[in-house]
Structures are given as structure tokens and as C-alpha cells.
Design a protein around this nucleic acid. Structure first.
Lengths: 135, 135
DNA sequence: CCGTATCCCCGGGGATACTG
DNA sequence: CAGTATCCCCGGGGATACGG
């Protein structure tokens, strides 16, 4: 988005590229998953399931598959008993760090901009726990 | 995502921040809209409707509203006849440029990584035109 | 343990028509 | 022109159960 100096044609290509990135990252849980794996370096299915609060096994399976297709993570089956599976970031996956750091910084700026506050909760956090079953 | 050196608590905060950013950006059309406005500097509703291929007026209206709530764009009603409305990026909106540039660069890298190719079409492009009605 | 299969619901979002 | 209102469909995604 260098805005001004670009010809329309180049602008179109830039937009496609951004969209490609977003397609890879914008799944509901992608970043949380990447972050979990990155934080622990190597991580197993059930561990990630615990790290990423709220995700179902179905979704985790699906998101991991997509991340693998996009070559961001590597999946390794360990011949333990019973079988365990290990996930880790590929080089390509690690190359996301800059992006994620920028998104982090901007997210903090944004929070201040919007609510002038750096409270605990995620801005769009859901509050199911509050509305929990009464009956 | 500085991965290693962070305590769990800080890691949690970082993830929230990234998620805040993604919530703002990951709408189906957000980036295209921002990009359109940025490219032309000031832009009207119907113009954006044309720029962003495939978007409906309903969605455009909705997305613009969200962008405005997040203070990324400024909406100005012009007292023309009939009325026209002008959208432009706020300072906060413009602060996204770094992010979007990074996403652009990464998107290009990613395309090469995945298909070893820099063809014309958007990776996940839909191909409805091909499967168009035969009957 | 690591997923897949099945069921089912809800809301995202398109098409179209209408208003100020 | 710049949206709202209405209708309606489809698939994302949760809960649960099952298989290797």
C-alpha cells in the first residue's frame, strides 16, 4: 500500500498479495495456534488443544491441516505407544515473526486509540462465562 | 511473538494484541476497502463499490461502519444534490501502512514458497466463471 | 492419543427492492 | 447517491460419538 506512486496495475498486484497473506492468517484460530507452537518450539496435538482456549478438536485438526498445506508448520508422527504427533514451525512459518510482531504493536496502539485503556480482556472477548447456565 | 524469552503472562497479552489487530483487519473486504480509499486519498461510496470487485452495497455499508467505529476512516457527508459521502483514512488508519506493506511482501514470498510461481491470479481465487451455467 | 464422522444450528452474506 | 429492509440459502463451526 504505497498508495500514491503506484500505477493501477501494480496496486492491483499489491492487493492480491495482501489478500494471500490474510487468507493464510485470518482463520479463526490460526495465529493462536502458530503462537502456541512457536512459544513451546515443539508441541503436540493435545497440548495445543489446551493452549488455544475454546477450540474444538475438529477445528484444530482443520486449521493445522491448512497451516501444513501452506508450509507454515511441519507435522511429525512419533512412534510412541499410543502414537503422538509433533508440530513445529517451518522456516517459512518462522518468517511470519516480523508480521506478528507488527500486528502486536499495532494491536496495542489500537486498543489505546479505541478505548484509551490497556485492560486485561481481549477487545472483542466473548463473555459466555458470565452468562453461564443458571437453570 | 518473541517466542522464547517471554513469560506466559506476557505471551498471553501479546496474543490478545495480535487478535485485536486481526479482528479489525480480517473482515472479508476490509483491506481492499482501505486500500481503495488510500489509493485515491478521498473516495465516495459508489466509487469504492466499483473498486472492490464483488462486494455488495450491504457489505460495503457494514464494513465501512466497522472501519469507522475502529477509527480507521473518517466519513464526511457532502451537501451536494443529491447527497454524496466521502471517506478518507484517519491518522490511525494510515498507521496501518507498515503492516500492509509487510503483508504484501510476505504474500509475495508466500506465493513463491507455495507454488513457486508469480502468476496473475489470487491464490485462492474462485473459479465460478469457469463452472458457469451450461444448461 | 490423534484425529474423522455425523448431526445440527445459527448467522454471514448475496439478490433484490425500497427510502430520504 | 447512499444506504436500509427483507428474504433466503449455504456452510462455518460446535457437540458428541466413534475408529485406528
Amino acid at each position: 500500500m504505497n498508495c500514491k506512486p503506484l500505477k493501477k496495475e501494480e496496486h492491483r498486484k499489491e492487493m492480491m498479495a495482501v489478500q494471500d497473506s490474510m487468507d493464510v492468517l485470518s482463520g479463526k484460530w490460526k495465529i493462536a495456534i502458530i503462537s502456541s507452537i512457536c512459544y513451546y518450539n515443539k508441541r503436540r496435538f493435545s497440548d495445543i488443544l489446551n493452549d488455544v482456549v475454546g477450540i474444538s478438536n475438529k477445528m484444530l485438526s482443520k486449521e493445522l491441516k491448512e497451516l501444513e498445506i501452506n508450509k507454515l508448520i511441519k507435522r511429525t508422527v512419533l512412534e510412541t505407544q499410543p502414537i503422538t504427533v509433533q508440530y513445529e514451525l517451518t522456516k517459512h512459518g518462522k518468517s511470519l515473526q516480523t508480521i506478528i510482531n507488527n500486528l502486536t504493536d499495532w494491536g496495542i496502539k489500537h486498543r489505546k486509540e479505541i478505548i484509551g485503556d490497556s485492560s486485561e480482556t481481549h477487545i472483542n472477548a466473548e463473555f459466555e462465562t458470565v452468562t453461564a447456565e443458571i437453570i
